[in-house]
Amino acid sequence: MITLTNVTKKYSSKKALDNVNLELTVGKLIGLVGENGSGKSTTLKLIAGLKHPTKGEVRVNGELVTRRIADSVSYLSELDEYYSFFTVEKTIEFYASQFKDFDLDKAYEILKFMKLDPKSKPKHLSKGNRGRLKIVLSLARNVPVILLDEPFSGLDPMVRNSIVKGLISFIDLEKQLVLITTHEIREVESILDEVVAIKDGSIIGHHNVEDLREEKQIGIVDWMEEIYG
């Protein structure tokens, strides 16, 4: 479970997050949506312990978050940067050496699904394929929390849908919580259990996607258009 209690994050005088309270439970695929600069990436980095809150606290499974929460949190950055001297295969092996929960078999299974050449170097891959490699590296870990920051950016729209649907098979929703930030809301809508909307550093809505559909008869995009005005 992830809890953010009265979390504020400031960059100089600008507030990226303003007194955020959020509770996310295991066994769900949750979308964190909002405009550019609304605080989505900051939220993920705070949960991954890669940023420190100015005020408040962030906990993962009751443990106060520090950088070393990497032990139980898999974080996928919005940047597709890799060590240039490693091939795809060596990158996977390096990750496997650093995270004891890294499942090599699962990594190669996802790699095959993503149709990536293990012998190629990430710097020679297209933006979309570098994005696929990020997904391989983050989903191959058997961790309670997976944070994916814009995992589908750069992916070819033709294959985006099939990749989004394929992701589900690599996630253990009994034990894992997956938090995704994305602009490709229509593509992920069908797989999300919950959606959290963030605007100017404040949470402006947190709903069960099914409830939205049943009670309000609207999808996430319509709901967002409603709350963002």
Partner: peptide, 14 residues
Amino acid sequence: RKRLHLWLHNPMSI
């Protein structure tokens, strides 16, 4: 520094 998240997202101590 150009890819700080790769270096710091690691359970190992600094």
